[in-house]
């Protein structure tokens, strides 16, 4: 009896501060976002008008919003796919193959992840510049000027240029993550399958991939959240959503509406949609990727 009281006190003391901070600085503000999405408010005056779901109705017909939605989805898909493929490829190479200087590569690959997004934006502006940029000058050194592009100027390419920076930033992080989970796979599995004559590719698909599957699933959620987040920070610092809205993403459009178009409530409605969208997408992906968990 005494033990259970003590236990209760212990649990209470340990969880309350965390719960308080979480409530105060994350849950309440999130509820505020939801609440303000039902109002029309300029942001400065005290003149808040309740408009119900009107902001969401407007969203539905706002082509600029639809475009930022498309851009965001495109980024999530492209960045996730490319990053996962590259990260798995390189983590397999570094764990399974006896590579000279493996540690060196691991250290280098992780560097972009520790840089501030402000710095990354600066770096990629220097890379993508049409005349004095590293990329176009590099191409001209090898005499393949035909590949030179207006990386941030061509509306068909700009969003992919942004995704290039995001992939660059993310590959090392996920690679290290997959490496650590691959390192836990017992070597005996591979030895056994080697004796059965399985090649690298077979081994990869029958051992490595199934055993790190759960890890990959977890990272998919990270991908959704971090792509929405980082694409905004990067776009703000690099293109401001231009040219003509072709790199506008969810959050940059939300900021634009809330601040420069003095439609704070409308901005929050966009926030709500982003929140629900990322939640739903994660849930769906979680469902689709469900496999029987293989234990080792």
């Amino acid at each position: 009896m005494k033990k259970t009281t003590e236990k209760r006190i212990f649990i209470f003391v340990c969880t309350t501060p965390a719960l308080l901070l979480l409530t105060l600085f994350m849950i309440v503000p999130t509820i505020e976002v939801f609440r303000m999405s039902l109002y029309k408010w300029g942001g400065f005056s005290n003149n808040q008008v309740f408009v119900g779901l009107n902001n969401f109705k407007i969203l539905w017909n706002d082509m600029n919003f639809i475009r930022s939605l498309q851009n965001s989805i495109l980024l999530i898909v492209v960045v996730t796919l490319i990053t996962i493929v590259l990260a798995i490829l390189f983590s397999t190479l570094l764990t399974r193959e006896n590579v000279k200087g493996g540690n060196f590569f691991r250290v280098i690959f992780y560097i972009p992840n520790i840089l501030s997004i402000v710095v990354i934006a600066g770096i990629f502006s220097a890379i993508y510049d049409p005349t004095s940029g590293l990329l176009n000058n590099f191409l001209s050194v090898f005499n393949i000027e035909s590949l030179q592009k207006m990386w941030l100027g061509d509306q068909k390419i700009a969003i992919y240029s942004i995704s290039g920076a995001l992939v660059w930033q993310a590959v090392g992080y996920y690679m290290v993550m997959y490496m650590s989970s691959m390192a836990n796979i017992p070597e005996s599995f591979y030895e056994a399958s080697s004796l059965e004559g399985a090649g690298r590719i077979t081994q990869f698909f029958s051992i490595t991939l199934p055993l790190i599957w759960n890890n990959i699933r977890t990272t998919l959620t990270f991908f959704i959240v971090s792509t929405i987040n980082l694409s905004f920070l990067l776009v703000q610092a690099m293109t401001g959503g231009g040219p003509d809205g072709s790199t506008e993403v969810f959050l940059s459009y939300m900021y634009k509406q809330a601040y420069t178009n003095s439609s704070y409530g409308y901005g929050m409605a966009i926030g709500v949609v982003i929140f629900l969208f990322s939640f739903a997408l994660s849930a769906i992906i979680n469902q689709i990727t469900k496999r029987e968990v293989l234990e080792y």
Partner: peptide
């Protein structure tokens, strides 16, 4: 609750926090 917190994107609750 804490897992759900993983989905809350700091960038759009900054302003409510400020307010």
């Amino acid at each position: 609750l804490f897992k759900a917190g993983l989905f809350i994107n700091v960038n759009y609750i900054v302003v409510p926090i400020f307010l």
